[in-house]
């Protein structure tokens, strides 16, 4: 009897605690920062001056000191180049933690971040003055 009971509890907790996949769709990044992967067969055709792929840029708009549409997540793999543009209707100092990059945004002159994602983890992008988080950068192992 106790064995059965313990079994029920354990199996129950297993079922309960096994994370579902239902959230995954909603967690898709607002914008992928990754550049399109080069096609494998590309080596055969030699293009002397390859046109570089249009870099993907994540755009965040700050209005009245808070991000429009909430805090956006940006997902990158380690080693990729991340491009982030923060526009603001008021002058702001925008800071990316850990990477410790600070850029300035002014009306019509967005803060432009471009850096290589070398540190894994989840990092806040915040307005330095009011300490408002406006975006997060998630860097996953490659």
């Amino acid at each position: 009897m106790p064995v059965v009971l313990a079994g029920v509890v354990i199996v129950g907790s297993l079922v309960l605690f096994t994370p579902g996949n239902d959230d995954d769709a909603s967690q898709a990044p607002a914008t992928q920062a990754s550049e399109p992967a080069p096609a494998d067969g590309a080596k055969t055709e030699t293009t002397p001056t390859p046109t570089p792929p249009e870099p993907q840029v994540t755009k965040v708009e700050v209005r009245g000191g808070s991000p429009v549409g909430g805090v956006k997540g940006l997902i990158a793999k380690k080693g990729e180049t991340v491009r982030l543009l923060v526009s603001s209707d008021s002058p702001q100092e925008v800071h990316l933690h850990a990477y410790d990059i600070t850029r300035y945004a002014a009306p019509g002159k967005p803060a432009r971040f471009e850096f290589k994602a070398e540190i894994e983890g989840v990092f806040e992008v915040e307005l330095e003055g009011p300490h408002t988080q406006v975006a997060k950068v998630e860097v996953r192992p490659s």
Partner: peptide, 11 residues
């Protein structure tokens, strides 16, 4: 994010 002190969190 855990620890505003840091501004970073684990994956």
């Amino acid at each position: 994010l855990a620890h505003g002190l840091v501004g970073r969190a684990d994956l």
